[in-house]
């Protein structure tokens, strides 16, 4: 498996407000060929900013960016506008958060797909575009005659399928999915997720799946990154995160959802709410909500360290100079 998308020490600060808001702070992640990578976190933790930064959608006039985004080894941050425009959707596409509002209300499904394809397939004959539209819609189980309809004439689930078809129309290498099933009922959600999984196998694209739903990420993704207050606080193979998630926040997220298999467990929430990104608490940003906070959490920011190969966590409880009995104790609780 070769690395296809690599984000290196990416920081994004919104400069259009006072105080400036550091929405993404030193985030590194990598996505390999045909891999599904999950990014977890509550609303307001910087997930959407991270996606927009990866896709180079944040205007320079409102943000300050540092770090690199490499797609197939090419640094997207140094590309000129027109090269970036040509690369969009051909290499990296997006399934937006709300398909309800992400489709142009006054254009038919077919016209929206056609316009995007025409912007990239400049030499294509109309027949090729039509064939590709039909083929892609069929893949997401939308009957061919529905392409003449307008978004308001489709159900929520169908709109989401159209959004997926739109993202796959040019067969990109990486598809970023921002909460692709939020706002749909559970049964429809399930169907869409199974479809994403099937299409991913069939077409072989890599997925960057962003969600607050930890159970969904653990089920679908091979690797999970957990974000809190603009930082990655834990990352690792999804199996390890689920069974041996170390950060109290990760375990809190897992406890928010009933287990998929095995015995019943009490569903818990995480008390409090995510901090205001403009006024982060000192030390570990999670400490005001953390049930296991120790004195140094309030003044020292923990850095991301490997606890095992491929499994990293940013928590003082798991840094080596912590008395081992405290760490053990925290594990027993999990």
């Amino acid at each position: 498996m070769s690395e296809i998308l690599s984000v290196r020490h990416l920081s994004v600060t919104y400069t259009d407000s006072t105080p400036t808001i550091p929405a993404v702070n030193n985030v590194s992640l990598s996505i390999h060929d045909r891999e599904i990578v999950g990014i977890a976190g509550e609303s307001g933790c910087g997930k959407s900013t991270l996606i927009n930064a990866i896709l180079q959608l944040l205007p320079d006039s409102i943000v300050d960016m540092e770090g690199d985004v490499l797609l197939n080894g090419q640094n997207l941050r140094t590309l000129d506008r027109e090269s970036m425009r040509r690369l969009r959707w051909m290499k990296i596409s997006l399934v937006p958060q709300s398909a309800m509002n992400a489709l142009n209300p006054i254009m038919t499904i077919e016209e929206q797909m056609r316009r995007i394809m025409e912007a990239h397939w400049e030499a294509a004959r109309p027949g090729e575009i039509v064939a590709r539209i039909d083929e892609t819609l069929e893949m997401v189980n939308i009957q061919r005659q529905y392409k003449k309809l307008y978004p308001f004439e489709l159900s929520g689930g169908m709109r989401q399928r159209v959004a997926i078809a739109l993202a796959l129309a040019l067969r990109p290498d990486v598809v970023v999915m921002d909460e692709p099933t939020t706002g749909l009922d559970v049964i429809v959600q399930r169907g869409i997720l199974m479809e994403i999984k099937r299409l991913q196998k069939q077409l072989g694209f890599a997925v960057c799946l962003v969600s607050h739903d930890m159970s969904l990420l653990i089920e679908l993704a091979q690797t999970v990154y957990v974000m809190y207050a603009g930082r990655i606080i834990e990352s690792g193979p999804s199996r390890d995160i689920y069974r041996q998630g170390r950060h109290p926040y990760t375990r809190g997220l897992i406890a928010c959802f009933p287990p998929l298999q095995g015995s019943q467990r009490t569903v818990e929430g995480i008390p409090g709410s995510p901090p205001d990104l403009g006024q982060l608490p000192p030390g570990c940003a999670f400490h005001p909500r953390c049930p296991q906070a120790i004195p140094r959490c309030t003044d020292q920011s923990p850095s991301l360290v490997n606890v095992r190969p491929q499994h990293a966590v940013a928590c003082h409880l798991h840094t080596p100079d912590i008395p081992s009995d405290l760490v053990e104790a925290s594990h027993d609780r999990a």
Partner: peptide
């Protein structure tokens, strides 16, 4: 959102 999507799509 559809403007943001159109941008992401490289129109």
């Amino acid at each position: 959102d559809y403007i943001q999507l159109a941008r992401a799509a490289g129109l």
